[in-house]
Design a protein around this nucleic acid. Structure first.
Length: 427
RNA sequence: GGAGAGGUGGCAGAGUGGUCGAAUGUACCUGACUCGAAAUCAGGCGUAGGUGCGAGCCUACCGUGGGUUCGAAUCCCACCCUCUCCGCCA
């Protein structure tokens, strides 16, 4: 959520920044709401002040045993107008809240301009895509040759955009998550957390999935409301600190969590329908950081480096791009995507997304810390995939395939595979 | 699922209709004492919003949402959550 003071005091700055993202924002609408709010609020508070003063008088008169009926009659006359004003003000504040809650974050000054992904800028590349002396297969063919990747059965038990993994592929999938967790906890200093996969609406609001993106989420009914299935561990992990007042020396908080993620993928019909690139359910190891505002931009670079480290350990070629203003997610102030080389598609595909949200999520969550001046200040939040496990499996299967249909196990994973070095096709 | 207890400031914990935004303790900040620290003493110390150049003044907030009342932390209703016991269960 944007700072409403910024909207009030520097609306032209906000308008320009939101325009850079391609967000529709009408300053006139906001200013009209604000003007109305000021009037109503002033009037309401005047009435409240009068009622309070008179009521206090009544209390004093009664305390002295004197007659208070004149004052009571006077204050009674305020009642209707006050009630009407309070109600109108409540409605108006609700509308302003909803308006502001629907505005995306402002891009950081270092974010390149651009309307869509064509405006993204490549920052760096690592590794060299391998030369194959045979016809490469995609992960679907590689995986089914190994007898461990099965989409037909998943369709039977659930539907499209699900996968069943068996045997060594299931183990490889698990091994990837283990490697990631171990690297991030042992070498990068993150604390592993296990969190709920069903969360409430407040949590979804806190990280910015609600109210605008309900259609992207799965949910299940719960009493009068509903639980939402997490689309990323970002939601439960970041919300660990929702409503908290942290001490400055508790920062930064660095969490890593391995969870399944559930996405409805509404509106992506026909995209990536083959294989496990785009699934309703996939595993991800997520990095989340709660940072002092002075450190958050350095933390974004560091966090992105932590995600990159996994790709390097797996010796998977990738590139790092910075998303342009128009391609960023709703809550992000700046995002780096890591894209891994997929030989079957002869292209780089997103495998990690690392973002700094500055105070945008913290303001929604009311997560603050006591700063050096003893004042409560909003923290900054960050997160990034480190990495998407399903897509990493895809990348391993494709990049490590051999002409005979077998797949080499990346060296970093061999210990996690009980020493197994090659996955052999099933005759 | 059943029965009971309870949700108040960073934390603990008083307050059951009227000068209560809320005692007290603790934490924290400032000052005194000290070479320094601890201890002690004095003062300060919630959040958000409105208004004013400013000191300030005003409003709202005691789990959430309604209601009663001139006036609600306090009374009523609904909901959420926590704890204890019972039942069930991985």
């Amino acid at each position: 959520m944007l700072d409403i003071q910024l909207l009030r005091n520097q609306i032209d700055v906000v308008t320009a920044a939101l325009g850079a993202r391609g967000a529709s924002f009408d300053p006139v609408v906001f200013q009209a709401l604000e003007g109305e709010r000021k009037n109503l609020q002033t009037r309401t508070q005047e009435l409240q002040a009068r009622r309070n003063a008179l009521s206090k008088q009544i209390g004093m008169l009664k305390g002295k045993g004197e007659d208070a009926s004149t004052v009571m009659a006077e204050v009674g006359g305020i009642g209707d107008e006050l009630r009407a004003n309070e109600q109108a003000l409540g409605v108006l504040l609700g509308r302003i809240d909803a308006f502001v809650a629907g505005l995306p974050n402002l891009p950081h000054e270092s974010v390149p301009a651009g309307r869509d992904e064509s405006g993204n800028v490549e920052i760096s590349r690592w590794g060299t895509p391998r030369e194959f002396d045979f016809e490469v297969s995609d992960h679907v063919d590689v995986g089914s040759a190994l007898g461990g990747l099965d989409f037909e059965t998943a369709v039977k038990i659930s539907g499209s955009r699900f996968a069943v993994m068996r045997g060594e592929i299931a183990r490889l999938h698990r091994a990837l998550a283990q490697l990631m967790l171990d690297v991030h906890t042992r070498e990068h200093g993150y604390t592993e957390v296990y969190v709920p996969y069903l969360v409430n609406a407040e949590s979804m609001f806190g990280t910015g999935q609600l109210p605008k993106f309900e259609a992207d989420l799965f949910s299940v009914p719960k009493d009068d409301g509903r639980f939402y299935l997490i689309p990323t561990a970002e939601v439960p992990v970041t919300n660990l600190v929702r409503g908290e007042l942290l001490s400055a020396d508790a920062l930064p908080l660095k969490f890593v969590s391995h969870t399944p993620c559930f996405r409805s993928e509404a509106g992506s019909y026909g995209r990536d329908t083959r294989g496990m690139i785009r699934q309703h359910q996939f595993d991800k190891v997520e990095l989340v950081r709660i940072e002092h505002p002075d450190n958050s931009w350095a933390a974004l670079e560091e966090l992105t480096g932590h995600a990159e480290m996994i790709l390097r350990r797996l010796d998977l070629p990738y590139r790092k791009i910075v998303l342009c203003a128009g391609d960023m997610g709703f809550s992000a102030a700046k995002t780096y995507d890591l894209e891994v080389w997929l030989p079957a598609q002869k292209t780089y595909r997103e495998i990690s997304s690392c973002s700094c949200f500055d105070a945008f999520q913290a303001r929604r969550m009311q997560t603050r810390f006591k700063n050096a001046q003893g004042k409560n200040e909003l923290v900054h939040t960050l997160n990034g995939s480190g990495l998407a496990v399903g897509r990493t499996l895809v990348a391993v299967l494709e990049n490590y395939q051999q002409g005979d249909g077998s797949v080499l196990v990346p060296k970093a994973l061999v210990p996690y595979m009980g020493g197994l070095e090659v996955l052999e096709p099933r005759g």
